[in-house]
Design a protein around this nucleic acid. Sequence first.
DNA 1: ATTATTTTGTGATATGTGTCACATTATTTC
DNA 2: GAAATAATGTGACACATATCACAAAATAAT
Lengths: 225, 225
Amino acid sequence: MKNECIDCVCVIKSMHTLQNCQVEELEHNHAVVKFKKGNFIIRQGMFSTNVVFLRKGVAKIHIAGPYREQIVRLVKGPTYLGLPTTFGDKINQYSVTAVLDCEACFIDLNVFKAILDDNRNFSSFIIQALSKSELESYRRCANRTQKQARGNLADVLLDFSDHIFNSDEFFLPISQSDIGNWVDASRESINRILSEFISDDIIAMNGRKITIKNKSLLQLISQNG
Amino acid sequence: MKNECIDCVCVIKSMHTLQNCQVEELEHNHAVVKFKKGNFIIRQGMFSTNVVFLRKGVAKIHIAGPYREQIVRLVKGPTYLGLPTTFGDKINQYSVTAVLDCEACFIDLNVFKAILDDNRNFSSFIIQALSKSELESYRRCANRTQKQARGNLADVLLDFSDHIFNSDEFFLPISQSDIGNWVDASRESINRILSEFISDDIIAMNGRKITIKNKSLLQLISQNG
DNA sequence: ATTATTTTGTGATATGTGTCACATTATTTC
DNA sequence: GAAATAATGTGACACATATCACAAAATAAT
């Protein structure tokens, strides 16, 4: 358990000025928790005084919409999870659920803030992370609304392949209805398009195992709606 | 021109620790520029070493999508404009266009960063602003995708009335096609729904002047899709 | 003022996808 | 390992909205 924080990516990245005493303070004010897939890591509406750092695993961020839960993004550790939720309010503004087994580090908010105050590199690291994240949501917005289901599903598959699993062969971590919810399509549409992709020999499916067989065509579909 | 920065909302908010020398440094490293409606304030793809603070006016943030420009949000001064764009990259990642006459303050990025480093209150103010902004985009995402055109248009009208103009009577600052683009509907649909709202006596229109006549009904429509 | 351009208004039609319905697997759960 | 629950497959159909096609206003440009 020793030196856990030292190994944390975000700590490493701002190591040059994060003093040993600060690392130690982190060390004594955090708790590493494991989550099996399907479990909540952060729950909308709950009171919280922690910052959460996702060390390992994949999780979905979802928020209560007017009718149903809406998945807004999928994240992969290592990354901070609860920054936007934690800074505005002490009540969590969205939920995070593990879609694969996860390991998360809960840091006391006050300790986190104190280190943020003491350490300019750390705070600028956080500012950059938040900025990137917002940019990403702009891009997603532009993509999702302009493409139709085929293109968005292609995007999701490419995202899994390129960013989450770094392989052309992977197990779908979420159900088809979740994919549908995420890209704003019905479960049935996702299913139909997947079959279509299979019969067009773009992918192969074996249960939830997906093999991308024609990536360039998939990229084309992703681009052309 | 003196004491311009002192009057800036963001400066005021972090005044307790922003030292006079810092304000002065801001004072000497910024430029206030006026924009007529329709003009670019920030242009995607352009090199920039400034942080932009929108002092007055209303502007739209839009980003190049796969097919067309996509409006992602409307903002009203006073607010920072280019934070996400400026921190990741020196190339602007999206555009901002004045939809009403605007007044923006261009601050040198290095000066801004230096003050950020020196001033913990200021940087935590920025972190909070970014967090809020990201939260907002989650919420918008959940709303837009789950509601249909009527509900989204109702949202837009309420947003104008409640947040931008603070009045039940206002001039639409953007065209119907822009509204359509923003809420992911066609110009024609927006037009038809507006007519519907008029004949249902929910709003009145006189050119671009809108009068909300039945706000509670509008709120109902906003909630129920 | 007169032309050019952008916005708005409205029908007719096409179409992508949602919804419903039900059968068939997988996967939990006890 | 049986029962219960959740996740898939796939057809038939409905429907919200996009698209196309023009006409009429309203703005902007010369």
